[in-house]
Design a protein around this nucleic acid. Structure first.
Lengths: 260, 260
DNA sequence: TGGACCGTCCCTCCCTGCGGAACATCCGTC
DNA sequence: GACGGATGTTCCGCAGGGAGGGACGGTCCA
């Protein structure tokens, strides 16, 4: 090996094969693919079999031809969901950060946890959050409580059943009935707060981000040290709710949403 | 090799790696991916480098972490476009085929050609069309003329510039001015016809399929032998236009479309 | 029936893909 | 500044995995 290759030829062939499918070339056979890729038919057949095993490709049983599979739909949805939310939220987050001077984050719900998917740090950051992708228990965070509060009651009850609400601070709500009462209050107000529940000395306020079907799909929060946040809590809450509304409208949300 | 493997392990690893990215796990590092996949770090790094070369993956230059790339967006769009159109059009096509007794097809525009992407044969088929994926010059087909007629004038002028309108029959429109006049007429009427222009003895009528942004994205046509089509041309035209409207509404089109 | 086309499978050859370990970089702590 | 821990990147040796040619079976059509 006189020169170190950085890429794997078999994986490259598979990638090129996937990219041969377009909205115009939706179904292709082994022979056509082999011709287009300049590879042997057996090689292409093995690539297809492998990609079919992983559901990136599927085969029409009648014609024997191949098309993109379910996993590509899911990958595409994952990629575009992230992109749409990022595009819709970028300016409102910047505005919010400028108005409050604190850290702005967006989280989504995954089971009984939130995952932080967007973040703009404030210059006064206390290093209280780590990088995007970080998770935390939903019940101790403003974003988590906000997302939980907009679940339908049956779903929420199922989640609370058997949920050991572990305390992260003395202020954490660990009683299911108390949490449910807090979530109902959050839903009525249209936002949720975190008062020292995940970290002593830190508070946050979080609002809901909705999509074109009026579903709450994410939550945006402002968080900072209590001594800075408390004097301006009302103003901050208003700014958060407004930023969430702007983001939601960009995602297609209206006051009279389309039926789902 | 005591047993013949049907799949390629390196390609399988790459596929599994791609599927590790979800809307929640949007950015992942080499070390995390290696741990989740149970592979060595250098193996994962090579997979990532290869997939990045093909744009299925991209790297954040600051954090060094990886996320799904542009090509995944494109693959996902290709997959979902095909699926959405198929789902929306299936019933209207069946109804149209039952009402007319002729072959129903859907085509999309690719440059100066149409590509047939859906087809329902009539029992009286003259073997005049081949399988899905077939192409033809746009200017000689009902679907092509329909799609061309709804382009904005600047785009159409650019396309006509230098376009040698080859004749497929003595009836084909080969004069650019005559074609432009015909397209303007089609646009006003809301449908287009093909009178022996692609094949002597065969005529068709085609209507526009619109999406939620009021863009004409495809065209549906009914085609058959002239002696069968001519006596029922008006009724057939109505049925085509109606099937296109039903399909369009399923794709989100409304009479008061959302601004793009 | 024969020919043309397709997708699938098998066998042989050789080179490619894997993982461990070293390396470079960044960050936080003392 | 030194150190430790984390990250992503590079190199090298080893063995098994991947590529292609060709045979096979099925389908369609004249």
């Amino acid at each position: 090996m006189p020169e170190t290759r950085r890429t794997l030829s078999s994986v490259q062939n598979a990638a090129r094969l996937l990219k041969t499918f377009t909205s115009l070339d939706r179904e292709l056979g082994v022979t056509e693919l082999a011709h287009r890729l300049g590879l042997g038919k057996s090689t292409v057949h093995r690539l297809l079999a492998t990609l079919a095993e992983e559901q990136l490709i599927e085969q029409d049983p009648v014609s024997g031809r191949y098309r993109l599979g379910l996993a590509v739909h899911e990958l595409g949805a994952a990629a575009s969901t992230a992109t749409d939310l990022h595009a819709a939220a970028l300016t409102p987050m910047s505005v919010l950060r400028a108005r409050t001077g604190e850290t702005v984050q967006i989280a989504v719900l995954d089971g009984r946890e939130v995952v932080y998917v967007e973040r703009l740090d404030s210059p006064n950051t206390l290093a209280l959050f780590l990088e995007v992708g970080r998770r935390n228990d939903a019940h101790v965070t403003g974003t988590g409580k906000c997302l939980l509060s907009f679940l339908d009651e049956a779903t929420l009850d199922r989640m609370l059943d058997g949920w050991e609400l572990r305390a992260q601070t003395p202020s954490t709500i660990t009683d299911p009935l108390a949490l449910k009462k807090e979530l109902a209050r959050s839903r009525r107000r249209g936002y949720a707060t975190n008062l020292h529940e995940s970290e002593v000395g830190v508070i946050s306020v979080a609002g809901p981000i909705r999509d074109g079907h009026n579903r709450v799909i994410a939550s945006m929060s402002v968080a900072g040290p209590a001594e800075r946040m408390e004097p301006v809590m009302e103003r901050t809450t208003q700014a958060v709710v407004e930023a969430c509304a702007v983001t939601s409208r960009r995602l297609g949300w209206t006051q009279n949403p389309r039926p789902t």
